[in-house]
């Protein structure tokens, strides 16, 4: 029971990362119907950029280290958001009229470019790099399980960011415009909505969330690698579909469910079967509930 509780909690932390990346996936999908395969690599690039910035500024600021991490985190969120907007402007925007599959192949191409770009930068390369700041081990006990404060912080930050995006989409005028563009882009444009701006904002939010997830991942796991975006992207994408793609609450829920399924599955079958467990859960869930956990638009043709 203790072990199970531990795995459950662990799944929650992993799920918090998945959720943040999944929200970005899901929002871009919701508005463009594009599976943005490069999204996981935005996350990876963010991890490397934050690694370099933190490495340059965090040294010697022992007392101020958490303050530094926070402002670097915000800066990286901004930069990653801009990277996503740039990718949209340079690649996806000119291809707006192309078939979706062409767009997806271009996204795969971008993913290759980002991964191999990082690989070819001398100070980054292919090795596992040790993140300059690591999370402290002190925390609290529940029963016999030990949790660190940082794990709690991850869940809180992820929750707040997701909640913020949810409120933005559901309560503000901008959010209304997003939903309108997602529903029918042409009609939205005819109603005077600046579609390009809305799409750019969606990319920015997705990128920024991936940036936040990247900094937290770096601090939590303590090391980064140029292929890290790939796995996380894959799992975040699965999480987004699991929860009902195009749906922000669904992406968060999907992330948490996937995290827990992976963690518990790993506990039962061993780490090497984690991926299999993930996808078996996914297939079963989609079979039982074809639109994802929270998917609403059931029979709509996309």
């Amino acid at each position: 029971m203790e072990l199970f509780l531990n795995e459950l909690a662990n799944g929650l932390f992993v799920g918090a990362f998945f959720a943040l990346v999944a929200v970005g996936y899901s929002m871009v999908y919701g508005i463009l119907r594009l599976i943005n395969f490069a999204h996981g690599d935005f996350f990876m690039v963010a991890a490397f950029v934050s690694y370099t910035i933190l490495g340059a500024v965090a040294v010697g600021h022992v007392h101020m280290v958490w303050f530094t991490v926070i402002w670097v985190g915000l800066l990286v969120m901004l930069l990653t958001g801009l990277l996503a907007v740039l990718a949209n402007r340079l690649i996806y925007h000119p291809m707006r009229r192309a078939a979706l599959l062409s767009l997806m192949i271009a996204a795969l191409g971008l993913s290759q470019v980002l991964e191999n770009g990082v690989l070819n930068i001398p100070s980054w390369g292919s090795a596992f790099l040790t993140y300059p700041v690591t999370s402290p081990a002190n925390g609290f006990n529940v029963g016999q399980s030990h949790f660190t404060w940082f794990q709690l912080i991850i869940v809180v930050i992820s929750g707040l960011l997701s909640l913020g995006v949810y409120l933005l989409v559901s309560r503000t005028l901008l959010g209304k415009a997003m939903r309108a563009v997602s529903e029918d882009r042409i009609a939205a444009a005819l109603m005077g909505i600046n579609v390009d701006l809305v799409i750019a904002v969606v990319f920015f939010i997705g990128g920024a969330l991936a940036g936040a997830a990247a900094v937290m991942t770096g601090v939590y796991y303590g090391q980064i690698n140029y292929l890290m975006g790939w796995t996380v992207g894959l799992e975040a994408f699965t999480a987004a579909v699991l929860g009902g793609i195009g749906n922000i609450g669904g992406a968060v829920l999907g992330g948490v469910v996937l995290g827990i399924a992976q963690s518990v599955g790993t506990g039962w079958f061993g780490a090497e079967w984690a991926l299999v467990v993930t996808f078996v859960v996914l297939v079963l869930l989609l079979w039982l509930r074809p639109t994802g956990i929270l998917g609403e638009r059931v029979a709509r043709r996309m």
């Binding site: 192949i105 271009a106 971008l110 470019v113 770009g117 690989l119 070819n120």
Partner: peptide, 8 residues
């Protein structure tokens, strides 16, 4: 890297 760029 070149391959990815050409793909795009």
């Amino acid at each position: 890297l070149i391959f990815g760029a050409m793909l795009i």
